[in-house]
Amino acid sequence: MTRPAIEHVQAVAFDLDGTLCDSIPDLAAAAAAMREHLGLQPLPEKVVESYVGDGIGTLVHRVITNERDTLADEALWEKGFVFFMQYYRAHLSDFTRPYPETEAGLGLLKSLGIPLVVITNKTEILAVELLKQLGLADYFSLILGGDSLPEKKPSPLPLVHAAEVLGIDHANMLMVGDSKNDILAAKAAGCLSVGVTFGYGDMTLLSQDQATKPDWLIGKLPEIYENLQPQKAQDEN
């Protein structure tokens, strides 16, 4: 694997669900509880997994209708959304865990003095609380949720905003994620995209289309550090 063709990495942005942690068990449990509350039968966990990535509001529509692109009745959605948020917030990390070597990878990058940020479509308050419960929040200089700004991924706005807050050129920021939204947002923002092969998205399939092909694939987070280390050494010589 070759490291990205970039002169100087000034920051690394990460998606949350499917990139830093596996949150499907708790999301699926909340989905099952919500459907039961609404008098519906539970959905298989794999189906719920396929609906994750565009924020909880959209997830609730998909879980109620069991369709990816169909909107639920507004009153039913509102009842479901309120229940889902209350249930999920009370059970954020019952079964959610960081992926193996996540903390090691973050620690290695911090040792290089590179600021790290989270850019997720999850509601900001839930993202912040989940990262705290997983013991990961202190690694990040900035945490942006799907409701932090007027637009969310695949819009480039959150990535451009993060770069502006950090005072860096967004062309020198990596965006690490597992989904189409992450890659599209990175490309639109002019950032390098790093796809993880262990998340919810099918990186093999995404890599077949130039529009969603990441610049770089990794199988574990420490690979980012391993590929940036030679660059740092060269910069210091």
Rank of each mutant, 00 (worst) to 15 (best):
F140T: 07
F140H: 07
S141K: 14
L142W: 02
L144H: 04
L144R: 04
L144W: 01
L144C: 08
G145V: 10
G146Y: 00
G146R: 05
D147W: 00
L149E: 12
P150M: 12
P150E: 15
E151V: 01
K152I: 05
P154N: 14
P154I: 06
P154Q: 12
S155Y: 09
S155F: 09
S155C: 10
P156W: 01
L157K: 14
L157V: 13
L157M: 15
P158T: 14
P158M: 14
H161G: 07
H161Y: 15
H161C: 06
H161E: 15
A162S: 14
A163N: 13
E164T: 13
E164P: 00
E164C: 03
V165N: 11
L166D: 14
L166P: 05
L166T: 13
G167Q: 12
G167H: 12
G167P: 07
I168H: 09
I168L: 13
I168K: 08
I168G: 12
H170P: 14
A171L: 04
A171W: 00
N172H: 15
M173K: 09
M173W: 01
M173G: 13
L174C: 11
L174I: 05
L174P: 00
M175K: 07
V176E: 12
V176L: 12
G177V: 05
G177R: 02
D178L: 06
D178N: 10
S179H: 04
S179A: 15
K180W: 08
N181A: 12
D182I: 06
D182Q: 11
D182F: 04
I183S: 05
I183R: 03
I183Y: 00
L184Y: 06
A185N: 06
A185P: 03
A185L: 04
K187L: 08
K187C: 06
A188I: 04
A188L: 10
A188N: 12
G190H: 11
C191D: 03
L192F: 12
L192D: 03
S193L: 02
S193D: 04
G195Y: 00
G195T: 07
G195Q: 01
G195S: 07
G195A: 08
G195D: 03
V196C: 04
T197E: 13
F198E: 08
G199Y: 00
G199I: 01
Y200A: 10
Y200D: 12
Y200R: 10
Y200N: 11
G201T: 02
M203R: 06
M203H: 03
M203L: 15
L205R: 15
L205K: 15
L205F: 11
L206V: 05
S207F: 07
Q208W: 00
Q208A: 15
A211F: 01
A211K: 13
A211S: 13
T212D: 07
T212N: 08
T212M: 08
K213T: 07
P214L: 08
P214Q: 09
P214A: 12
